[in-house]
């Protein structure tokens, strides 16, 4: 599903590499933690996977396509099959939960009845179908992250990328969020979850790719 070959990323010419010579494969349907301390390169790696950044060297294959050679006109197509969840949720505060979750489907030009149906199912899946017309700021942090997950999953993505999704949440909420990722993974979505929360990894052991100073220092499965 995801192959990295000698991937390097330098943000500035003479600065230290954000990522250095990464090589690994992730199979379809895998659940993988990307872990490491702050500045290890976790977010940079995810950015490369959703084409917000280009690698300075090396090749990345996603679903058989070399995304490093992909023209910018093809990037939207790649992102339509990729769900992305951020630590700061990135919800639109002036739109209702329904409108937030409907956003990716509107972008894809889906019909209104299809959008309504899918959005309701996605919000039901994260337990927020009773708050369709609420605004994000009327919700708790955990609920906001659940909306963000619903938005990521509403398009039935092949890959779900999550960048420190529980970084701002307490343990109880973190466990609920991880359950949602596990459910998505059980339905066949490949999940890459960047975190430095070792407690989470201990409770839900899965394959761990550990980075330090941009280098792969450990790749282990439980």
């Amino acid at each position: 599903m995801i192959h990295l070959y000698n991937v390097c990323k330098n943000y500035q010419k003479d600065a230290a590499s954000a990522l250095h010579n990464l090589n690994f494969k992730i199979a379809k349907g895998d659940f993988v933690y990307i872990t490491g301390p702050s500045g290890a390169g976790k977010s940079t790696l995810l950015k490369l996977l959703y084409c917000a950044e280009k690698p300075s060297r090396g090749q990345i294959l996603v679903n058989g396509k070399n995304i490093t050679r992909m023209g910018s006109s093809h990037i939207p197509q790649l992102r339509r099959h990729t769900g992305i969840v951020f630590q700061d949720f990135k919800l639109l505060d002036n739109r209702t939960l329904f409108e937030n979750v409907a956003f990716p489907l509107e972008v894809q030009g889906k019909k209104r009845f299809e959008i309504s149906n899918k959005v309701y199912q996605a919000l039901k899946h994260v337990g927020l179908h009773g708050k369709l017309q609420k605004y994000p700021l009327q919700l708790s942090g955990g609920e906001q992250q659940r909306v963000a997950i619903a938005r990521a999953l509403v398009v039935d993505p092949l890959i779900l990328l999550a960048d420190e999704p529980t970084g701002n949440l307490d343990l109880e909420v973190t466990l609920e969020i991880i359950e949602l990722f596990k459910k998505a993974n059980a339905r066949g979505t490949t999940v890459l979850l960047a975190t430095h929360d070792q407690e989470m990894i201990r409770r839900f052991p899965r394959r761990v790719i550990a980075l330090e100073n941009g280098q792969l220092v450990n790749d282990s499965a439980p």
Binding site: P76, L78, R79, K90, F103, V107, Q108
Partner: peptide
């Protein structure tokens, strides 16, 4: 700018 960023992240084409 948040809306523009999110649009791009969920696969909107530049023209959209």
């Amino acid at each position: 700018r948040d809306e523009l960023e999110i649009m791009a992240l969920v696969g909107a084409t530049p023209w959209f």
